[in-house]
C-alpha cells in the first residue's frame, strides 16, 4: 500500500507520506514478525541492509537467476532505490504490499509479476523505475553498458525491432552515459514511432541522441527515407 500511495502521488515522497498516513492501512495478511525473520535471513552481517550477497541468496531461494527480469519487477514492488540492495523498510513494506510473508508465497507471486510486464501502463512504470534503480548511486546518468543491458532485458519483454540497432548505434557513435531524459524518451520513441519511421518528426522534441539514431538508421540503410 505504500507503493500504491507512491504511485498515487506520482512518486513524490512527501505527497506519498500524506496519502499513506491519511488512509487507514488495509489489513495485511502478511505477518510482520515473519517478515522480520525473513529479512534477517538475508541481511548483511555488518549493515542493516540486504546487499548483493543477500540478494543472491534470495534469488537462490526463489530459484531465479539474478539477471532475471523478475528481480526488477520485485525491486519495483519494493520500491528499491538501487539494484542489488534492499533496505529493511523497502523489503518489509514491499512484501507487505505484495501480501506475502514467506519465500513460498513470494515464489507463487513470481508468475503474476512476470505477467505485470505485459501490462502497458505497468511496463511504463517499471521501465522508468529501472533507470534510477540501475544507475550508480550519486550519478545522474546511467552508464552505457548498464543501460544497454537493461534495454535488452526490457525490450525482450516488449518487442521493439530497432533495439539492437539502437544498442549498436550507442556503442559506435555515442559511448557515453545515458541521461534520464533520453532513457524516458526512448520508450516514448519505441511506443510512438513505427519501425519504418514514417511518423517520425525531425523537428520534434526528441532528444538529440534519438535524432542522431534516426540519421544513423538512414545512413546504414536500415530504414529507407
Amino acid at each position: 500500500s505504500a507503493l500504491q500511495a507512491l504511485k498515487a502521488s506520482d512518486w513524490h515522497l512527501e505527497a506519498a507520506f500524506d496519502v499513506f498516513y491519511s488512509h487507514p492501512q488495509p489489513k495485511s495478511n502478511a505477518d510482520s514478525r515473519r517478515l522480520e525473520e525473513l529479512y534477517n535471513r538475508y541481511k548483511d552481517k555488518y549493515s542493516d541492509m540486504i546487499l548483493a550477497d543477500g540478494v543472491s541468496v534470495l534469488c537462490n531461494d526463489l530459484q531465479v537467476e539474478p539477471q532475471d527480469i523478475v528481480t526488477l519487477v520485485l525491486s519495483w514492488h519494493m520500491n528499491a532505490a538501487t539494484a542489488c540492495e534492499f533496505s529493511k523498510q523497502e523489503f518489509v513494506s514491499g512484501l507487505q504490499a505484495l501480501g506475502v510473508d514467506s519465500i513460498g508465497k513470494l515464489q507463487e507471486k513470481l508468475a503474476f509479476m512476470r505477467s505485470e510486464l505485459k501490462d502497458e501502463q505497468k511496463f511504463h512504470e517499471i521501465y522508468n523505475f529501472a533507470f534510477g534503480w540501475a544507475k550508480e548511486k550519486g550519478q545522474k546518468s546511467l552508464a552505457l553498458d548498464t543501460a544497454i543491458g537493461m534495454w535488452q532485458l526490457l525490450f525482450a519483454e516488449r518487442e521493439w525491432p530497432l533495439v539492437n540497432h539502437w544498442c549498436e548505434f550507442l556503442q559506435d557513435r555515442h559511448n557515453k552515459a545515458i541521461s534520464k531524459d533520453t532513457w524516458a524518451q526512448l520508450l516514448e520513441f519505441a511506443r510512438m514511432v513505427d519501425p519504418v519511421l514514417s511518423n517520425y518528426d525531425a523537428e520534434g522534441a526528441w532528444p538529440y541522441l534519438i535524432d542522431e539514431f534516426v540519421e544513423y538508421l538512414y545512413d546504414k540503410g536500415v530504414v529507407q527515407k
Binding site: 531524459d181 533520453t182 522534441a205 532528444p207 538529440y208 535524432d211
Partner: peptide, 8 residues
C-alpha cells in the same frame, strides 16, 4: 541539434 543538447 546544438539547441537540443543544451535543452537536455
Amino acid at each position: 541539434a546544438d539547441l537540443k543538447k543544451r535543452i537536455e
